[in-house]
């Protein structure tokens, strides 16, 4: 059956899966962050999304906007590093854009992700090309918008988004960091994949796997 809209319950299931993915990839993200950061991105995302999972139990009967805002607040108060305010803002703005709805159609979903990505860029003041999560998030958003404009099915849009996130993540490898802890390494950050772009990719890959298997 074609996906016409993502339901509240599907969102909850996706977020639970994301929590598991961050638990499974804690060491991987830690290793990436050890190379060009302070080696805490893995544990931060694991801890943050573990807190999200706990929080979800309290909001499982609420609307999508409320759920996303709860996710944002949980991340802000438990992640500790830059990812806290950044992903926190992503989900808070996404929640504001989603509003009191029980489902998101493809255009609504695209608008929600747009709000989230713009929130991240306002909070962190990063643009594409600075070796940050924005290098994965902006292509993801572009793919969703393109898919919508081209009249592609929702599932296909989600797969295109995940693919765009992956190539955006990989594109961070040759970049020199000008933001965050990695910027202290300067030239030495070149040749390493950005951990923030990687965690963004993991989120969108998980969404595609859950909603468009």
């Amino acid at each position: 059956m074609t996906l016409m809209a993502v339901s509240r319950d599907q969102i909850l299931a996706c977020l639970g899966s994301v929590a598991q993915v961050f638990a499974d990839n804690m060491d991987y993200l830690t290793d990436l962050d050890a190379a060009i950061g302070d080696a805490d991105h893995g544990i931060n995302m694991q801890r943050g999304f573990a807190a999200v999972k706990t929080k979800l139990a309290e909001v499982q009967d609420k609307d999508i906007g409320t759920i996303f805002k709860a996710v944002g607040m949980a991340l802000v108060s438990t992640v500790g590093g830059a990812a806290g305010p950044l992903y926190g803002t992503f989900f808070l703005r996404a929640g504001q854009a989603a509003g009191q709805t029980q489902e998101l159609t493809q255009p609504e979903f695209t608008t929600v992700i747009d709000a989230g990505v713009r929130g991240v860029m306002e909070r962190g003041k990063a643009k594409v090309g600075e070796k940050t999560m924005v290098d994965a998030l902006q292509p993801t958003l572009d793919a969703l918008r393109d898919a919508l404009a081209q009249g592609r099915a929702f599932e296909e849009a989600l797969r295109m988004a995940a693919a765009a996130a992956e190539s955006g993540m990989k594109a961070t490898v040759p970049l020199k960091a000008t933001k965050g802890r990695a910027s202290y390494l300067g030239e030495r950050s070149i040749g390493h994949q950005d951990p923030g772009a990687t965690s963004s990719y993991l989120i969108f890959r998980t969404l595609a796997e859950c909603l468009a298997p």
């Binding site: 302070d38 108060s77 500790g80 590093g81």
Partner: peptide
């Protein structure tokens, strides 16, 4: 200071 007294990081709240 810190996410909490035992953990490095920042706590906006």
């Amino acid at each position: 200071g810190g996410l909490d007294k035992d953990t490095l990081g920042s706590n906006p709240e």
